[in-house]
Each structure stands twice: as C-alpha cells, then as structure tokens.
Nucleic acid binder design. Structure first.
Ligand code: SF4
Ligand code: SF4
Lengths: 151, 151
DNA sequence: TAATCTAGGACTTGTGAGGTCGTATATGAG
DNA sequence: CTCATATACGACCTCACAAGTCCTAGATTA
C-alpha cells in the first residue's frame, strides 16, 4: 500500500544515475547497468524528456541529460512526470469523485496527510538521491501548511 | 499513484463514524450510511476487529465498537490492519527484493521518505478524523529521525 | 548507407484491488 | 423453540491497470 510504481522507481534510478554521470547516457546504457528492461527504460526516459526534466539527443551517440541541475529537480517532479499527480485518495484529482464523495467524512483530513507527503517528496531533491546524504543530519522540519502543491 | 486502497478508505470512514457514535454500530448500518457495499464493509470491519482495533458483538443487536479510545488509534494502525505494512518501495517488506535490489541506487533515500510518511500517518489519530480539527493550527513538525516505526 | 539512437503508438500479459457468494455460527426477541 | 439479525470467514469472480513487449518511423553520426 502507498507503494510507488515500478516505472517511477526506474525513473528515480535513472535520474540519480544521470545526476552523477557527466555528459549524457543512453537508455540502453542505464537499463543494462540496473538490469531494467531496456524498452521500458526507454519509455520512461522519453516521458521524463517530454516533461522537461531531461533533454534528449537523437541519433547515434545520442542520449539523455538532466535538463536542470540535480538540486533543482525534486522526486515529486519525477514521480508526477511518470505517474501523474500524487493523490492519496481517489477523489483528490479533478472531479474523480468516488461514490462516497457526498457522504465522506474523512476527505479533508486525508488531504492534509496528502499534503504532508507531497511536501516530503518536493523537498527531497534528485541530488540527494545521487550522493545519498550521509546521515540526514539536520533537515528542515516538514510543516503542514508548507505545501501549496496541489495540481 | 501513492493512493491508498479503497478498503483502507472505508476502514477510516468506519472508524471515524464509530469514534463519534456512542454504543455500537453494525456493518450494515455503516455501509448504508456511507453507501459502501455491505459485504465489503463487513469484511473490512472483521479485519479491524481481528487486529484488535474494534471489539465485536455477535448475534442480533450486535455490532462493533472501538477497542480503544479514538485518541489512541492512529490512521497508520488502521491502514496497516487492512493493507499490511505501509511500503513505498517493493523491497521494503522482508525479503521482497525486486530484481534491482542488488544494484539499486535509490533504496535508502526512498526508505527515508517512507519513514516520513509513516510518521505522518502515525501522528494522525482517528479522533482527528472524527471531529475534523478546525484548522490544523500548530501541529508538531515531522522530524525525519522520529520514526522507529518499521514493521 | 549502415549502425545506433530517440519517439511513440499498439499490443499482450500478469497481478491485485474491489466486489460477490455461500455457509457456519452466535444471540436476542417473540 | 425458532426466527430474524448479526458476525466470521473462506472461495470465488471480474476487471482495470501496471508492467512489459513489439513494431515502425525518424534523427544523427561514423
Ligand atoms: S471515500 Fe472520501 S476520501 Fe476516499 S476517495 Fe471517496 S471522497 Fe475521497
Ligand atoms: S528498485 Fe530499489 S528501491 Fe525500488 S524496490 Fe527495487 S530495491 Fe527497492
């Protein structure tokens, strides 16, 4: 439960890889290194590129590069590029009202929890994935009202 | 993505309902009130009872009651009772090692995020779901190291 | 012009969530 | 006593979606 998709997982691995590696890397290269199905990795990278997180270079000797610096891309960015908006409840996105929407008694509290999660994802940058922070020493506390992140 | 299951959702609604209502309530009663499939609601409640979050009374005029006070049950308790341990990654539980486990470069950072999420869920009590806190005024900040909550 | 790469749609497969059914058992009311 | 109303629980069905495959087109370089 609350698990993120494999594609998103792959995406994060690729981003972390690109954050370290200078220059560009091809889909095949990354896929083989992490034992990810090549075609699937390609698709994931394409999506990241389409969402402006990566820049792509076509043709032989082509590949992908981070579009911004690794400190400027959050894992929330990556996840949302792959899986769409993060939503804890079925009702959170647009008018996706589940059958219980009208009578629901837990909607607001759950949205608040959702904000905490999105906030946590937004504050963790790809750079932190790459050079895995040694000990999470003194990180900024997550404040509830700190996330105006909703879609 | 990162959505919680419908069953968990139903469970939280039921818990919030029971937190308000004095005495006990039957599965059918709750199911009808929130337009939840009766048989499914029953199953969810049974599971909550088996995990010690509810006490059940069989037979006519039977039903369910909160086993503890609403301030003593967290939404993490409820979710875990229904869906098992909260895990952001496929590898988080026991030896559920996905194919990439060996070469994975994002495992640790993701677990840290997972801890933040679990922490948020553990700090929100069923009582807060019930009488939806007026404005989330001054809540304790979520600290990263604050969650020794793993399984 | 052949090899290598991205781009992207169409397709197949597998899994698990959501929901249903059937049956056994407990219990109070009439 | 027995009937209506509950919980208890396993087996089953169904269907959407995640994960993965395949195929074709177009860019780039050696
Ligand atoms: S049950 Fe309530 S919280 Fe869950 S999806 Fe429906 S409206 Fe949203
Ligand atoms: S890819 Fe890494 S983080 Fe994701 S499940 Fe596998 S081991 Fe865990």
């Amino acid at each position: 439960m609350l698990r993120l998709s494999k594609k998103a997982d792959y995406a994060l691995m690729a981003m972390a890889h690109l954050a370290l590696k200078p220059g560009s890397a091809s889909a095949r290269e990354i896929a083989e290194k992490y034992e990810i199905p090549t075609e699937l990795m390609a698709k994931v990278l394409q999506r990241l590129a389409r969402h402006g997180l990566l820049t792509s270079q076509q043709g032989a000797r082509g590949g992908y590069t981070l579009a911004r610096t690794a400190t400027g891309i959050s894992v929330a960015d990556v996840i949302q590029a792959i899986d769409g908006p993060v939503s804890v409840t079925a009702c959170s996105t647009h008018g996706d009202r589940c059958g219980q929407f009208a009578k629901c008694n837990v909607r607001d509290p759950l949205w608040r929890i959702s904000d905490i999660i999105v906030s946590a994802l937004s504050k963790t940058m790809v750079s932190e994935l790459a050079n895995d922070v040694p000990a999470a020493v003194e990180r900024a506390p997550i404040q509830i009202a700190a996330a105006p992140v909703r879609a």
